[in-house]
Design a protein around this nucleic acid. Structure first.
Length: 865
RNA sequence: GGGCGGUUAGCUCAGCGGUAGAGCACCGGCUUUACACGCCGGCUGUCACAGGUUCGAAUCCUGUACCGCCCACCA
């Protein structure tokens, strides 16, 4: 299938419509179909990031997914069978939130399923409460719509995905993999359940993981409070500073540094909390910072993570006041755990804040403290960082609840080692991973008190009194997975026994979205259900992703693979940066600076947008820049037109003998080598850049230089040499550009070749140099000298404001001997291209000060051949 | 507080030990038989700053400043 009989070169080639035309053709021909008959070493497997379908796609997605596609296309042309599925992340809170707003509904798990429920056409002001199954149905309905829109965009962008291999993080396969993985961990005692203080979002009313935290700067204030000594004989008081005085009723101790001379005498002694008159000990702990506040802090259950550490390490009692909804719980002072030297006064004070949110309670308790004389001075306003759930609106609290955890902390050294085995692109991103692993302060909490997600495949027996026996979970046989314990019944029970004493109860929680996403290599690779496929693709070759989710997605995937398979999930991680606006801020929906990607693809062409994306180096943030897209579009158009010119004579017409042709191919071979090296090392940017600059040289200098000869001005052999050389160059260039500009290269390829350029072999220098018997650096020097002189002539004509076809009547070329010698060898082409009417005088000179005398341009052109 | 990137022409960036580069923008030309969605030419810089290594530094080392980001037990 060398060349077609007659090339179908359009009269006026254009980019418009190529996206639609070729995405259809690729689908019809199965161009990107994965061939599962191949063995692991013949396969290049990609663990695609499943985009969150409930969010909208923005230009950042187009940017980073293009990078992956460039690599995929390169590897495919290198002969690998590319395993490139697409996933959709439809699991979790973002979907829930979108469904709530889109349909105007709220999930109420206590309601029964209504098979006839249909959401109203317009979301009502007052949300409708619906059952969990109804809610999940709406989630699935909406995500299906979103997924269609995403796929449409991806196809239009030209991602070379095998679209028969999509998965969604909520689908049956994902649920099965997710639940299987969980049960394995449970069996190996690597997953466990614990009632413990947990980071808690009071609006979503769910536990969240450390990886989902973010700091936000908020106003706060230092309040200096006086604690009296409990021993009657001592009047000396202790002063502490706190930003959260409303937690005073939850105070269980004071703490200072063991070496702090100021407080040493107090260690082991008791003090009384103001207002509530609870007796609490003064303790020593190395985490207390003598420089902060007054050097002594109050420990509450629980104000922050440090409180949890102190509480655990000092074996302090629990005195919790924050409820799951963020308000202070009602309680009776004087009861066990709530001892007070003056229960009546404590109760009176507490009643002022009970049931209130932390903010309101804070305001009120400050007034009470002031009245009681326990507030020293006035609160001093400060700005400080407060921990938030990244999707939340109010500061996180710490609430004690029963949650599932995956053991993480004990594997830190092994995980660091895994990170070192992984090849990072760019290399410095490894540091972020190590920072994260080293900073972990607890096991991974994977349970969420939400509705749309993968349920825990666990039931619990109920004892005679109907109490849940958490210590004896009932798990299903693997063959039953996936299951929903709120619907399915454990073996040996009947559904009538649900919730009955002596019966069973399903675990009500769902898994954190990352608990499922951390298994994308297993899900996409068919782990547990198509093990033949799995062994062919796992461990995968590439995980492409952005740097903001190293601590979540990348980390958790490495962890799960380490625990499940004792291996890395992939060999390479390619980390892309962000798209920023011109002020260097990340473009995001919340900042209101996003641009709809589809409009950009239509305006600049997918190839144009991909060109801009490919200019962003791995790991580097890139400015959103439509002018670069225009440059890419121009490049694509230039490819069409140059190809049309080259393909005017689509058959090689003879051996490549002319020196300019040999020089051009020699330079091209260098470009091929460089592009290959750069792409093979995941550094696609130089490949694009060098190919592009060579191509413009090819068009504007080389083609102009040999044009006349190619038209036959110097005989058939000379014309044939040019023709054969430019055909070979075009063939090579189309393949080099194919990963970056898949549409235009495929279009041109179709004019004269059969099959897809994207299945053509990646070019190698040997093939380019074969017809000229190897590289010829001298020929390249000759070519460049010819171009240099041509440049001088053009400059002269431009300065004289004359057309380029203006003849050079006479010339004196001054240059070093070496240059003059080179020029001699290519003079015929230079003379024709520069319109020299006579041979120039040549003078040896160390400087280049040639003189060109211009004549009058010929009024009439010769007719085309 | 610790760390990672970055700082080169108005803009976006390449160069990473040997006389400062590209594209865009801007200005001036040119209907040249592939392309006016084009072509030719021009203008533009104490390579953030300060030291050091070197025959020679944008390039290597040390420090400083600023920008962006990551991490941290921020009472």
């Amino acid at each position: 299938m060398s060349t077609a009989e007659k090339p179908a070169v359009p009269e006026k080639p254009a980019l418009e419509g190529l996206e639609t035309k070729w995405q259809r053709q690729w689908e019809a021909s199965g161009t990107y179909k994965f061939d599962r008959a191949k063995t692991r070493d013949e396969i290049y497997a990609i663990d695609t990031p499943p985009p969150t379908v409930s969010g909208s796609l923005h230009i950042g997605h187009v940017f980073s997914y293009t990078h992956t596609d460039v690599i995929a296309r390169f590897q495919r042309m290198r002969g690998k069978d590319v395993f490139y599925p697409m996933g959709w992340d439809d699991n979790g809170l973002p979907t829930e939130r979108r469904v709530q707003n889109y349909y105007g509904v709220r999930c109420d798990p206590s309601l029964a399923y209504d098979p006839n429920f249909q959401p109203p056409a317009e979301p009502p002001k007052q949300p409708i409460s619906i059952s969990r199954p109804n809610f999940v149905e709406l989630c699935l309905r909406l995500t299906r719509e979103d997924e269609k829109a995403f796929e449409h965009l991806w196809r239009y962008l030209g991602l070379s995905v095998d679209w028969s291999m999509t998965y969604a993080t909520i689908d049956k396969r994902s649920q099965r993999a997710s639940q299987t993985g969980f049960l394995h961990l449970l069996k190996k005692n690597l997953a466990y359940q614990l009632e413990a203080p947990t980071l808690w979002d009071v609006d979503f009313r769910t536990a969240v993981a450390q990886a989902e935290l973010e700091d936000r700067e908020r106003e706060g204030a230092y309040h200096r409070l006086r604690f009296d000594r409990a021993d009657a004989d001592s009047g000396a008081a202790v002063e502490i500073e706190t930003t959260r005085p409303e937690l005073l009723p939850a105070c269980v101790a004071l703490v200072a540094h063991p070496d702090d001379e100021r407080y040493k005498p107090l260690f082991g002694k008791d003090v009384l909390t103001p207002l509530f008159r609870s007796r609490v000990p003064v303790r020593a702990h190395a985490l207390a910072d003598p420089e902060k506040g007054s050097g002594i802090a109050m420990i509450c259950t629980f104000g922050d993570i440090t409180d949890v550490t102190w509480w655990r390490e000092l074996s302090l009692p629990v005195r919790a006041v924050i409820q799951p909804n963020g308000t202070l719980k009602p309680l009776t002072w004087g009861d066990a755990g709530w001892e007070s030297q003056d229960a009546a006064a404590a109760q009176k004070a507490y009643n002022e804040i009970a049931g209130q949110s932390t903010n309101k309670a804070r305001t009120r308790i400050v007034e009470l403290l002031r009245e009681a004389g326990a507030l020293i001075g006035e609160p001093r306003p400060i700005m400080h960082n407060v921990k938030f759930f990244e999707k939340g609106d109010r500061p996180l609290e710490i609430v004690t609840s029963r949650q599932w955890f995956i053991k993480t902390i004990e594997f830190r050294p092994a995980l660091i080692e895994r990170g070192r085995q992984l090849q990072w692109h760019p290399e410095y991103m490894r540091v972020r991973y190590e920072n994260w692993v080293n900073g972990l302060n607890g096991d991974w909490c994977i349970s969420r008190q939400r509705f749309f997600g993968v349920p825990f495949p666990v039931w619990y027996p109920l004892n005679k009194d109907g109490g849940i026996e958490y210590a004896r979970p009932i798990v299903p046989d693997q063959s039953r997975l996936p299951i929903d314990p709120s619907v399915d019944v454990p073996d040996g029970f009947t559904s009538a026994q649900r919730g009955q004493p002596g019966g069973f109860a399903g675990d009500p929680d769902i898994m954190d979205t990352w608990a499922t996403s951390s298994m994308t290599p297993q899900i996409a690779g068919g782990w547990g259900e198509d093990d033949d496929l799995f062994t062919r693709v796992f461990p995968m070759d590439l995980r492409p992703q952005a740097h903001d989710i190293i601590r979540t997605w990348l980390f958790s995937t490495v962890l799960r693979s380490h625990l499940e398979h004792n291996s890395l999930p992939w060999l390479h991680a390619a980390i892309s940066g962000f798209v920023t606006d011109p002020d260097r801020k990340k473009m995001s929906k919340s900042k209101g600076n996003v641009v709809t990607p589809f409009a950009l693809l239509e305006e600049h062409g997918s190839d144009g947008v991909r060109y801009w994306a490919a200019s962003g180096r791995p790991g580097g943030d890139t400015v959103f820049d439509p002018s670069q897209m225009r440059v890419g579009r121009r490049l694509a158009i230039k490819l069409l037109n140059a190809s049309k010119f080259v393909l005017a004579k689509p058959e090689p017409l003879g051996p490549i003998t002319e020196i300019a042709d040999r020089g051009m191919l020699t330079r091209l071979a260098d470009v091929v080598d460089l592009a290959t090296t750069s792409l093979a090392s995941y550094d696609y940017t130089p490949a694009m850049e060098k190919s592009e600059s060579f191509f413009w040289f090819f068009c504007d200098d080389y083609l102009e230089l040999v044009k006349a000869r190619r038209y036959g001005d110097h005989g058939e052999a000379a014309a044939g040499s040019a023709n054969s050389a430019m055909l070979l160059a075009l063939d090579t260039l189309l393949r080099v550009f194919a990963p970056f500009l898949p549409f235009v290269t495929e279009e041109v390829w179709s004019w004269w070749k059969s099959g897809s350029v994207h299945r053509a072999p990646w070019p190698v220098a040997r093939e380019v140099l074969g017809p000229i018997g190897g590289g010829d650096p001298h020929a390249a020097d000759v070519l460049m000298e010819g171009c240099r002189v041509l440049g001088e002539v053009r400059k002269r004509k431009s300065e004289e404001k004359k057309p380029l076809r203006t003849p050079v009547v006479s010339a004196t070329i001054r240059a070093p001997q070496q240059n003059l010698d080179l020029l001699d060898e290519v003079w015929r082409d230079v003379s024709a291209s520069g319109c020299f009417q006579a041979s120039p005088r040549k003078e040896v000179s160390e400087t280049f000060e040639s003189v060109y005398e211009l004549g009058e341009p010929e009024p009439k052109q010769r007719t085309p051949a």
